[in-house]
């Protein structure tokens, strides 16, 4: 316990690093994932193949390799080294977020694609029969339905990325795990250090799970009210 109290400011900063890596990585990853998922469902064949190669690469290789490739590898590429891009790529924090975002975007794109493809054909055909165009079909039928399938799977991805920040931080960033390593090697008290850091991670997991459950429930609740309002008289 004294390990925690003695190093409290350090733990605070490390927690902040872990959380900001997670949030920025997830936000970036989501914005990359949405178009990739859409391409892999709607675009012509060559584009679909491109999306498949992208997701296969990032899902099939370790995050550690991706982080090292971006931080140590891309710094050697001339276009990056000698243009304004270098300002970003020389920062380990930026590289860690980029790696996390690229990695999670591949998994998230797959989740979105799966959710879109599980929308029953009948619902889409009914919408089309009402004269909705493709965009409106997405807005009113496919996306609301897919969202409910998307959320539980995305919840586990959020937790995975929260833990994966520890890998992204291996490039000289001081997050919770690197701090634990520092304390383990400095104090020779690996067990206490582990218990403190593991408890913090489990607490974050717990809070995140709660928040995600709450969002899920709110959405399914709204959905129910919506259906009740729309249902014809006498059906309930």
């Amino acid at each position: 316990m004294d390990l925690l109290i003695d190093n409290l400011p350090q733990y605070g900063r490390a927690l902040l690093t872990t959380l900001s890596l997670m949030i920025l990585g997830l936000v970036g990853g989501f914005f990359l994932a949405a178009p990739i998922a859409l391409i892999s469902v709607e675009a012509p064949r060559p584009f679909k193949l491109g999306a498949l190669i992208y997701t296969t690469f990032f899902r099939g290789t370790p995050l550690l390799v991706q982080v090292f490739m971006i931080y140590y590898g891309l710094g050697q590429v001339w276009v990056i080294r000698h243009t304004f891009l270098w300002a970003a790529f020389k920062e380990p924090f930026f590289c860690a977020i980029l790696a996390l975002a690229l990695n999670t975007s591949a998994y998230t794109a797959n989740i979105i694609k799966g959710a879109i493809q599980s929308v029953p054909k009948g619902e889409i055909e009914a919408g089309a029969a009402f004269g909705l165009n493709r965009a409106k079909l997405y807005r009113y039928i496919i996306l609301p339905y897919a969202l409910r399938l998307f959320l539980p799977a995305y919840g586990s991805e959020v937790i995975i990325i929260m833990k994966a920040t520890s890998l992204a931080a291996t490039i000289t960033l001081l997050d919770l795990t690197s701090l634990a390593k520092l304390i383990m090697s400095r104090t020779f008290r690996p067990f206490e250090s582990f218990i403190i850091t593991a408890s913090i991670y489990i607490a974050i997991t717990f809070v995140l799970t709660r928040i995600l459950k709450l969002i899920e429930r709110t959405i399914s609740h709204e959905d129910k009210i919506d259906r009740l309002n729309r249902a014809p008289e006498g059906q309930f």
């Binding site: 994966a164 920040t165 520890s166 890998l167 634990a180 390593k181 991670y201 489990i202 717990f206």
Partner: peptide, 14 residues
């Protein structure tokens, strides 16, 4: 609930 790297580090130092 804990990162894999943290468990690996515990095994190494522990």
């Amino acid at each position: 609930g804990t990162p894999e790297l943290l468990i690996v580090l515990l095994a190494f130092f522990g």
